[in-house]
Amino acid sequence: MDSEAARLARAPAQHAEGAPVIELAAVEKTYPSGTRALAPIDLAIRGREFVTLLGPSGCGKSTLLRLAAGLDAPSAGRLRWWGQGFEAVGRPGQHLAMVFQQATLMPWARVAANVRLPLDLARVARPAADRAVAAALELVGLAPFAASYPRELSGGMQMRVSIARAFVTDPDLLLMDEPFGALDEITRAKLDADLAALWGTRALTVAFVTHSIYEAVFLSTRVVVLSARPGRVVAEVAIGEPFPRTDAFRLSQRFAAFCAELGGLLASAAEA
């Protein structure tokens, strides 16, 4: 991934552009049990944005992402993908992928077969699929482990398999639900850096859920702060820091300032 980072260093800084990739208009979610997960939420994520949803535990961040993935339907309000209904998802240039909190791998399938799953389900021909799998594994640095079983890998490596599986379809919108929450701090920082580099190399829009302020500041072009349940947007902070971002950014004054600002917002959000 180092060579990619070097290539990135020469690439111009990215900016949000174009029409919203995903748009939520007055979206609410109340579960059958009566739990109100989301208060009316309005949110638009534009092409090439890396938007992080930051909020206290149980603020409905994951619910929001499930709605965005089409896994749940909102109780009220409307979601649009590329300006259309969910049926538009999957058309050329409108691919969606999701990375879950757990690696969510099939324990009975080797790493390569796990990564190939989305292509198999879409009935992509085997040679083309195998090429895409090899490229995706290369991307996350797991090419030597193609024939391993998930349980033979560490938690961090399993998560990278999960990310390779998301990237294998060359998605245009990537949803990530606290993907590194279960990992140790060092692995997490490493994967954050890899993800930031990956994002920079492609025309990819990311919606990322986390409750880590540091992760949010390091990765995002924009941070959306959600309140405690029922979740609603309390603040938005643009992180106007050029990419690629490195450990130098983590140690900078600006990083600390962003963290302090978001920390304050998050504290008030938890009380609200």
Partner: peptide, 8 residues
Amino acid sequence: DLFRMHRA
């Protein structure tokens, strides 16, 4: 969920 998302 993953299978559902990929319209299996």
